[in-house]
């Protein structure tokens, strides 16, 4: 069983970890709706000023245009912020996964290394 565990660790276990790292990053990007927000970056935010102004006075139309522009600008800012947050979180997860991938082959050696460190009296 030990042999099976060790052989899995360096084959399917390691490659599975890489796969999981990719999935984790993708999930995070989806949680922050990065793709959706990029596609609708300049859409009015929550359609707040999307009411029809057809047939209205010039003043009304001008005001509606202003509202719309504000809504779009506000939406673009909020969306950009969340896209940025999503990307940062995704990169953080990616870095964490990378560290995990690098550390992975050394974990079976941890008991031996730990005994050596203890005997050598290594402190942090």
């Amino acid at each position: 069983m030990l042999l099976a565990l060790v052989s899995w660790w360096y084959t399917a276990g390691w490659s599975g970890l890489m796969e999981k790292a990719g999935q984790r990053s993708a999930r995070l990007l989806e949680t922050f709706s990065v793709k959706l927000l990029l596609g609708s970056l300049f859409d009015p935010f929550r359609q707040i000023s999307a009411g029809t102004t057809r047939g209205g006075s010039f003043d009304m139309q001008l005001r509606a245009l202003g509202d719309r522009l504000f809504s779009r600008a506000f939406g673009a800012v909020i969306r950009s912020l969340f896209i940025l947050l999503g990307l940062v979180a995704s990169v953080a997860v990616f870095v964490f996964s990378l560290v995990q991938l690098i550390m992975w082959p050394f974990i079976p050696l941890l008991p031996v290394a730990a005994v050596l460190l203890a005997l050598l009296g290594v402190h942090l």
Binding site: W9, I107, L109, V115, A118, L119, V122, H123
Partner: peptide
């Protein structure tokens, strides 16, 4: 233990975490 108590015997606990991590990961797989 290693950092706070400044005892190198804390490494033994860290070393034990390795096999447990392996067993847990394998069990999930």
């Amino acid at each position: 233990v290693v950092w706070g108590v400044r005892s190198s015997w804390g490494w033994l606990l860290v070393g034990l975490a390795g096999p447990l991590w392996m067993v847990g990961s394998w069990s999930r797989y």
